[in-house]
Structure formats: C-alpha cells, structure tokens
Design a protein around this nucleic acid. Structure first.
Lengths: 163, 163
DNA sequence: GCAGAATTTGCAACATTATAACATTTGCAG
DNA sequence: CTGCAAATGTTATAATGTTGCAAATTCTGC
C-alpha cells in the first residue's frame, strides 16, 4: 500500500504529493482529460495538506501566489478533480481531500479526527457489501455513498495530542 | 415498524406527524428538556415534509406565519432538536429531516432519492458492525457516523423512467 | 496551417448556508 | 419577589457555493 494512504504514520510527504501528481497525470492522459496548470496546482495544494482544505483556503493560496483567481476558478477545478476521482469532497466538513486510491473503483470511507483534523481514507469491502445489502433490501438503486466517521485518531486518544 | 419510517409506502402523514410530536414531547419531558413552541413548530414543519427541509425553508415558513424569526431562531431550534435526537442533519444536502427512530440508540443511514427527493432512514446492525470493525482495525475511536446514500428509490427507478 | 467548434478561463454579481455578538425576555428556584 | 440560567430577539457578518456571459485557449477536420 502506498505510504500516502497512511497519514497517521510518518512518511515523506513531498514524495507522497509528487507521486499523487504523477498518478494524476497518467490517469488524465488515459482518459483524455486535460489536467491544466490550474487544476494541477489545486490538486497539489490539496495533497500538500493531509487535512481537508476548504475551497476558499485553496483560493487564498492561489491568490497569494499571484494567480488571478475567483471562487469559480477553484470550484471548477475541484469539480474536474472530483469527476476524475482525484479528490473527494468531505460533506461534513465542506472541504476537499486528495483521493488515496485514485484510479481504483472504490467506496471511500473517511475517518476524520476532531482533534488533529487529519483524515484517513479507507476502503473496506465488508462495509461496502453491508451497505449494498441494506440498500438492496429496500430496492434502492445506489449511485453514491457518503461515509464519514468523526472521532479520535490513534495519535490523539493515546498520549498527548499532536498538532 | 412504525409507518412513518416508510415514506415510500402510502400512509396517513398527519398521523405520522402527530405521533412524532407526541413522542418528542414525551422524550423531552423525560430528559427535562424544554420543547418550547418555536422548537415544537420547527419539528412539526420538518416532519410535515418527507423531503429534508433547509434551515431557510423552515425560516420562510415561520416568517409567513407571522413569527418574528431570523436565521438564529431556526438554527438554535435545529441544534436543540438534533441534540435530543429528534431531527438529523443530512450533510450532503445541507438539510434536516425528522428522526424516524427518536429515543432509540441507533446509527442512521439515509437513502436519498435524487429524483423525488424523499429520504428513508434505515437502521442496519450489520452496516453498523462493519463500520465499527473497520474503524476499530485502525484504532480509531468513533464518535459519530455520517452515512448517506444517493440514488433512486423504488418508485423512481421502476415505472415511467426506465433506463 | 487554418477556420470553426468545443473547452477552459476570467470576471462580476449574486445566492445560499451558517454564525457572532449582545440586548432582552422568560421560566424557575429559593 | 428576586436573582440566575435558559431561551429568544435583533443586527450584522462570515463562510460556502452558483450563475451568466465574454474572452481566451485548445482541439478537430480539412
């Protein structure tokens, strides 16, 4: 498993970001999608933080870099990145996070630490199966699943809180 | 199962609303919580719609009834109702819906139809177990679960619009 | 290469959702 | 009745997200 899927553990984050960008370029090329400079920069900014970034956080960063950006700039880039499975929106936070399993078909499950703000994306087939069984029993046709768990990550409920 | 948990099936909605209000009064009395007129009216408005209502939808209704209401009026009532398990917030819709299992300890799972807008709240122990197993395996201490499934309800994927 | 089509971006205005801060009123215990 | 805590009223503002249109860029067929 790539180290970038494990924010609770130490890792070289620069490598993890550049790997995510490399993957994204490849995915977009395969799909004939245009990963333009703005889109790529937004993806990079989101990856540089393990904590989900709000659209206006991204906007502020772009602006401070001299990019002539307005809200639609950011929301359009985020829409593109979401459509291509490169970022996820965390509904309970109104924020965005890099997809740890870009290119794979998966149901993301997000563990959100209320103390440190870090988010871990998991894929769990038995959770996915249980959900599909439950929705299927209601004859509901599932299209998208939002599954976000708030709580305390291992680093924050043992010992002193970090960051 | 009480009929008010089954919006897809026909039922007497007035009865279902008044039952919800009766339950709410009892729950609040037991907890020594004050279900004031405004709070009760907000709860009733939310129950009268099977589709989740936005805070400003509630506000508009209160205003049209001559209630001198502002956004905090509604948000405070909604906070109270949420804290006492009488309504749920649907994060993916920024809207609120009556809790179909008020008073019971449960993990709500919401099936949201993108065609008709109705929402069905389910409780499924195997889903809950799978989620707790998955978070436990990461040593994550779960406090709250947001589980919202978007798709098509039985009434909307059979009949007229076949795909 | 080039013209036209399609996509992407810039930009201004606006819409929606939610909160802050502080004054006032109400309910209730002593 | 009095004083405190809870609830509400009121104004303003913050945070998040969208619409619409024009300009620029990129792609495509020729």
């Amino acid at each position: 498993m790539p180290s970038r899927a494990l924010p609770y553990r130490p890792h070289n984050h620069d490598d993890c970001v550049s790997q995510a960008l490399t993957d994204a370029r490849e995915i977009c090329q395969q799909k004939n999608a245009r990963l333009t400079p703005t889109r790529e920069r937004v993806l990079e900014l989101i990856w540089q933080s393990h904590k989900p970034l709000g659209a206006y956080d991204v906007l502020a960063e772009l602006t401070s870099e001299g990019h002539n950006a307005a809200p639609p700039t950011v929301y359009r880039a985020l829409d593109f990145l979401q459509q291509h499975g490169l970022v996820h929106r965390i509904a309970s936070l109104n924020a965005f996070t890099g997809c740890a399993h870009a290119g794979e078909h998966h149901t993301g499950m997000f563990l959100i630490c209320r103390a440190c703000g870090n988010v871990l994306e998991l894929t769990d087939t038995s959770v996915a199966k249980a959900i599909h069984d439950a929705t299927g029993a209601e004859a509901f046709r599932t299209e998208a699943i939002t599954l976000e768990v708030a709580g305390l990550c291992p680093g924050c409920h043992t010992g002193p809180h970090h960051e």
